[in-house]
Write a protein that binds this DNA or RNA. Structure first.
Lengths: 331, 331
DNA sequence: TTGCCTATTGAAATCGTTTAACCAATAGTG
DNA sequence: CACTATTGGTTAAACGATTTCAATAGGCAA
């Protein structure tokens, strides 16, 4: 039923070894044999079984990218970077989603343990530091976008603390005195770091942090809307809001627009990620841009380096971010 | 270096066959042996090599979902459906992106030909009908979201012609006389079908189709903006615009807002897909909703059925769509 | 003719599993 | 007691490729 290398060998009247050599473009094979094999491959419609090949070579030339869900549209640029780096070295990138379930994340990592892929990149780890740290010693595992505090693992990200500091400082520079923060109760390292940056900026400016101006929600739009509403109910209202994601910021702006608050004048808004919709939505959102493509490209390049060399580079690389200024900060 | 089933067997003082039986929860193995094997597995940190297993069983329990890019955020629901169906049967879903390159699509299908996955689902085929049709005869391949005219392949989609008809008819029912269409020059079957529905609705209402009111662009936001601008420059301006995607429709509305056209009054807008941003964007967009989750779930259920039974179901299933009415049509 | 070198080629080992075929020992049955 | 089942286990043959190693043939120099 299935056509194997044996069938090709028989049809071409050579041994399986010769067929293998032709297919892998090895030298030491006569022009005659090459012709015969190619003809046979063509006729039979043969394609080599990767399971056999990969088992023998014990490498798959495949890398798994593990993400939470494909909904976070801004992953797409990261993945593009990963793919470009991978293809350049003859690797393929496969994507799998954890759906925010640490158990499922572990299940997917099983593909790594079981040699179904040569390496894996986690874009939003749900597993705890100790677990990840342990695995990184045994397998070719890397982190992208999210770092892990005190964890020996290859990691490519941005300096989120610094970015949070920069965004908040910009708002302060615009004359804002009471800056609200909408973040997530889910304590990813990036949200922790961004909040830290926010706090440090206020402290540096000599403004005490008002805990009532910090709202904790999830990653959805509604968090922005509810967060903004909540902050506006404070006795002393904020004059600016920094959100740790554009999606949240857009939700917050939606609330403002519907309540006749002039975005960019009465109140300034700052987002994070520079997703496509952040400049489609009107008023256009000021935001922090991180080098998505480059982070993806870098992490895969380094991971492949590790796979090839055996020498594990377990450093953390922080790539530069930048501020994009638009309507929502009155620019 | 690598721990294999042999090492476990040695450590547990049994044969490899017994280890395999324990791991696969087969009968005919004493409690004693089970204990010994489990202990050995634990101690050695053994995880079975999938390449060996899959080669032997010649099945991987993995299905590949081939999409254009992860940017199209509305795929995420489809993928959720696919995953739920897959997990229920012990399968995993892997995702790969073609980046709109038919050659790369073929490369990814190579994983199917080479048994690295048991089946594949194409969500936005770039390859031509004849090629796909041919492959579907030999492999477990299915289509989701996009049908293919006269192609013998398992396919789960909606009736896009009917949906285009319904949306246009709704605008007609609202009293619109000159309805513009913004679609793509990339001739996917869904865009062809939606345009056909648009034309049929006009004809049914006795309104001749004005080719000047049809704008062809790509799938980006800018197409909406430019399309709207172009349509407004016509000698007789449109009083409504039907866009074949929400992203395009949002772009079109952006143009309208910036040019002081009252959305939902002066001009009505209809989108397609009901993406998350379609109700975040203000004014909220009326749109056609397709059952994303259900389409994904259905196609994988049927594909797994094909894999298991061998009997190939190559039918086309059309699931019901619905109209979501919001601000942009004055509802 | 003999010997040596090179260019091709094929037979067989190997990768890590699963599983069919077999075997020994124990228990059950008339 | 002789004769099956049943149970728990082993050995060895797949699965489909790659690759090592040895063998063959032909060319060429001595």
């Amino acid at each position: 039923m299935n056509i194997t290398i044996k069938d090709v060998a028989k049809a071409a009247n050579v041994s399986v070894a010769t067929v293998s050599r032709v297919l892998n473009k090895k030298t030491n094979v006569s022009e005659e044999a090459v012709q015969a094999v190619n003809r046979a491959v063509e006729e039979l419609g043969y394609s080599p079984n990767f399971l056999g090949r990969d088992l023998r070579k014990s490498e798959t030339k495949r890398i798994l990218a593990i993400i939470a869900s494909t909904e976070q549209s801004f992953y797409s640029e990261v993945l593009r970077g990963m793919q470009d780096a991978a293809y350049a070295d003859g690797y393929d990138i496969l994507i799998a989603t954890t759906r925010d379930d640490p158990e499922h994340e572990m299940h997917l990592l099983g593909m790594l343990f079981s040699k179904a892929v040569d390496g894996a990149v986690l874009l939003a780890p749900k597993l705890d530091n100790a677990t990840i740290s342990g695995l990184a010693k045994k397998y070719h595992l890397a982190l992208c976008l999210e770092r892990m505090e005190g964890c020996d693992i290859l990691c490519v990200t941005i300096d989120n603390e610094r970015a949070g500091f920069d965004a908040t400082s910009y708002l302060l520079g615009k004359g804002c005195k009471r800056i609200g923060l909408i973040t997530t109760h889910i304590r990813t390292q990036s949200s922790i770091d961004r909040e830290r940056g926010y706090r440090r900026a206020l402290e540096t400016a000599g403004i005490p942090v008002d805990e009532g101006l910090i709202y904790y929600g999830d990653y959805g739009v509604d968090t922005g809307t509810k967060g903004c509403e909540h902050l506006m109910r404070q006795s002393r209202k904020p004059d600016a809001i920094f959100s740790i994601s554009d999606t949240i910021a857009i939700g917050a702006m939606t609330y403002a627009i519907q309540n006749d608050i002039k975005v960019g004048k009465d109140m300034l808004f700052f987002g994070f990620d520079n997703i496509a919709y952040s400049h489609m939505f009107i008023p256009r959102l000021s935001t922090v841009e991180q080098p998505c493509y480059l982070q993806g490209k870098t992490v895969v390049e380094k991971l492949i380096g590790n796979i090839k060399n055996g020498l594990p580079d377990a450093a953390t690389y922080m790539l530069p971010h930048s501020l994009i200024l638009r309507d929502s900060t009155g620019d």
